[in-house]
């Protein structure tokens, strides 16, 4: 990113990596862990931490492509609705249309990808701003989920389907492996491939990226499709964990996802961000929820905290950025 070592930076006593957003955040995370652990001895146990990993997977899977999207300067508010739509279609294609469950899972993933593709195609071809396009599909996809399900739920899935959501693999929650693999792949893609670097180029200056011959539209189309696909995957993991399908699944996911990404240092203005930051942001948000819950704060109050954290982390990040730019 923009961390070109300036001459005076070399004279600083503090090494540069210590001042990075991710490092500072990781340190705050560590302190928060210790403090919360001190308040409650159930908090800092391996069991609890692994369980929190299980709970964060659904949001985490979506936060990775959201990092890509926000780096390009876009946003996707429809992810929660895509989760709802995919969950409903998973249940319905299995129970009502009688597809075998593996096929139903594929179908639901396909629908997720198609939903993301629709976002991407309208954003790139018609040039509708991502914010408005995804507000429209936030309504549309949730509306389809509600219309198709008619507020009925689907349950009674076969036993094997619950493996991903509820069992352990090598002592770690099964879906956490999914998230770990996705994190590694996303980090490599963002950091080490032309595709990943193109995302930064688009976010920094889309016109310049276009004139440099970068396939701007194609890359954007891919990230929005990916976002839909991962929301579909997240829906399958969610259904597997909670064993039922309802049309209100995934409501409010966009808040958790965007909060995690922005807290992780990805600039809402585009051009800046890392997967590692998002991972730390995710951990912060989940531990905040869990820590507050263990100290007796109710679930509704935790979204107050997440909302506040979202606003403040953006405030701090943008004022830091303004100072760095030397105004």
């Amino acid at each position: 990113m923009s961390e070109i070592p300036l001459p005076q930076a070399a004279k600083r006593v503090v090494p540069w990596w210590l001042l990075r957003h991710e490092t500072m955040l990781a340190m705050i995370l560590l302190i928060a862990l210790i403090v919360l652990g001190g308040f409650n001895n159930r908090f800092l146990t391996l069991d609890n931490l692994l369980n929190q990993g299980r709970l964060t997977t659904e949001v985490g899977l979506i936060a990775l492509p959201m990092t890509f999207i926000i780096i390009t300067g876009g946003i996707d508010l429809s992810v929660g609705s895509i989760v709802g739509l995919c969950a409903i279609l998973l249940g319905y294609s299995w129970k009502i249309f009688g597809l075998p469950l593996p096929l139903a899972i594929c179908f639901s993933l396909l629908v997720g990808a198609a939903a993301g593709f629709l976002n991407g195609i309208v954003i790139t071809k018609v040039k509708v701003p991502p914010l408005i396009m995804t507000i429209a599909t936030l309504a549309l996809y949730r509306g389809l989920a509600e219309g198709i399900s008619q507020a009925r739920s689907v349950r009674g899935y076969p036993e094997w389907f619950y493996f991903v959501g509820q069992e352990n693999l090598f002592g770690v929650p099964a879906q956490l492996w999914l998230l770990l693999i996705a994190i590694v792949v996303a980090a490599i893609v963002l950091d080490r491939t032309t595709f990943g670097r193109t995302l930064y180029a688009i976010g920094n200056n889309e016109t310049a990226a276009r004139f440099s011959g970068l396939p701007v539209d194609r890359v954007k189309l891919i990230v929005y499709t990916l976002s839909g696909l991962m929301a579909g995957l997240s829906a399958c993991v969610l259904v597997s964990r909670v064993t039922t399908t309802r049309s209100d699944m995934g409501i409010g996911y966009e808040l958790d996802v965007i909060a995690a990404v922005v807290l992780g240092g990805t600039s809402i203005f585009g051009g800046v961000g890392t997967i590692w930051g998002t991972v730390v942001g995710l951990a912060m948000i989940q531990l905040l929820k869990n820590g507050l819950a263990l100290t007796g704060v109710k679930g509704d109050a935790t979204i107050v905290v997440i909302g506040t954290v979202l606003i403040f982390s953006t405030l701090v990040a943008s004022s830091l950025q303004r100072r760095r730019e030397g105004v």
């Binding site: 203005f269 509704d300 979204i303 405030l315």
Partner: peptide
């Protein structure tokens, strides 16, 4: 004045108001 995009501010406020009201 602080130049934070409206979507971030109002998304945050949405959750503050919603969570605050229910709790």
């Amino acid at each position: 004045y602080l130049r934070i995009p409206a979507i971030v501010v109002t998304l945050g406020m949405l959750s503050v108001l919603k969570g605050g009201l229910i709790s």
